[in-house]
């Protein structure tokens, strides 16, 4: 079972994060505020890819759907920003459900290819339909808070991160979490155990896409401009790097990975594109030598996961009893 996020030691990083802003200069405050956006994305992608095994490349497209929906509603219909963000979340969730439904028969790399193609088409649509989206020039959207200070955004982003983390770990601690891992380990075996795999696949796409939409809405109203660059492969690569480096099977790992990778990429900003080379190598090294991420490794659990002999053929049997037990309890 995933451990409760409300254990005492969890308060330490939370309090530290709350106390940090007065100690930071404007630049790093901005960097950390943006890193909350990436942390929400990385954690929700980790839930989708790491827990449920749906390796989607469309996550940034859902963030863009949330951002653009909210931004366009605010610009064209003068909707209040919080209401716009809620609509953005709903829009991303609905499209996510549709994509999940379309992907029902696809597994592994096929799903990745499908979502990659979807993200590409969506990005080109944002560019081509410039009369709505302002194309590559970018859509200027109203900001949430008046004034130039990033402090309110820092706290808003952090609260949104905590809220989405709580929602996701609530989901994982319920029986759904175990169904999701069964889905990842062996879809046929899960189906044979009576799990409605179609339902949970659509559910997990809906939930993670809605959370990505929330992140996108926050980001748009924070930086004040949305461009099709949000959906590019390098952006997706950044989120993959965050989740993989932190630990793709751990929500806190993904958050730590997101902050670490984003801060690292800012430290290396002067090196230009070289920083993406460094990030790519970091992904390779992490995958090669610590598949469960540096966070898991740092907690001292890396060795156990890593050396566990995991014969693939045994996975269904390993997943099945857990599911049965849970079904009986429930």
């Amino acid at each position: 079972m995933p451990r409760s996020p409300l254990q005492i030691w969890w308060l330490v990083p939370i309090v530290a994060a709350l106390a940090l802003p007065p100690l930071l200069n404007g630049y790093w405050l901005h960097v950390l505020s943006v890193s909350w956006y990436y942390a929400i994305l990385a954690a929700s992608w980790a839930l989708l890819a790491g827990y449920a095994g749906q390796f989607s490349f469309a996550h940034m497209a859902f963030a863009a759907i949330g951002g653009y929906a909210s931004g366009l509603l605010a610009v064209d219909l003068h909707l209040p920003v919080p209401l716009g963000i809620l609509c953005g979340i709903a829009a991303a969730g609905i499209v996510g459900a549709a994509i999940g439904w379309l992907c029902l028969r696809m597994r592994g790399p096929y799903l990745s290819l499908f979502t990659l193609a979807f993200a590409l088409i969506f990005q080109l649509m944002l560019i081509a339909e410039y009369q709505f989206t302002r194309g590559s020039l970018g859509l200027s959207v109203p900001e949430i808070f008046a004034g130039r200070s990033d402090t309110p955004y820092y706290y808003t982003g952090f609260v949104l991160l905590l809220v989405s983390l709580s929602a996701m770990s609530f989901l994982l601690r319920s029986r759904v979490g175990i169904f999701l891992r069964a889905l990842r380990e062996d879809e046929d075996a899960a189906e044979a155990c009576g799990i409605d795999t179609a339902l949970y696949k659509i559910l997990i796409f809906t939930v993670t896409s809605a959370i990505a939409g929330l992140a996108g809405g926050f980001y748009g109203h924070f930086v004040g401009i949305l461009t099709p660059n949000l959906v590019t492969i390098p952006e997706m690569g950044l989120v993959v790097a965050m989740a993989v480096v932190g630990g793709v099977e751990s929500l806190p790992g993904a958050v730590v990975g997101a902050v670490f990778v984003y801060v690292l990429s800012e430290v290396l900003r002067d090196t230009g594109q070289m920083r993406f080379v460094v990030l790519g190598l970091l992904i390779m090294l992490t995958q090669r030598y610590a598949q469960n991420g540096l966070w898991t490794l740092a907690l001292g659990r890396g060795g156990r996961f890593w050396r566990r002999p995991p014969p693939r053929a045994v996975a269904p049997e390993a997943a099945a009893p857990a599911v049965e037990r849970e079904t009986n309890v429930g």
């Binding site: 592994g108 690569g237 070289m274 993406f276 790519g280 190598l281």
Partner: peptide
């Protein structure tokens, strides 16, 4: 070998990282 749990995901991640490294190294 049996070192990797989920081979599909491992392969996607490392080949995607190869793409990141080569493309950005080419820009540099």
């Amino acid at each position: 070998s049996q070192k990797v749990d989920r081979k599909d995901e491992y392969a996607i991640i490392v080949t995607f990282a190869l793409f990141m490294v080569l493309e950005n190294a080419a820009i540099v």
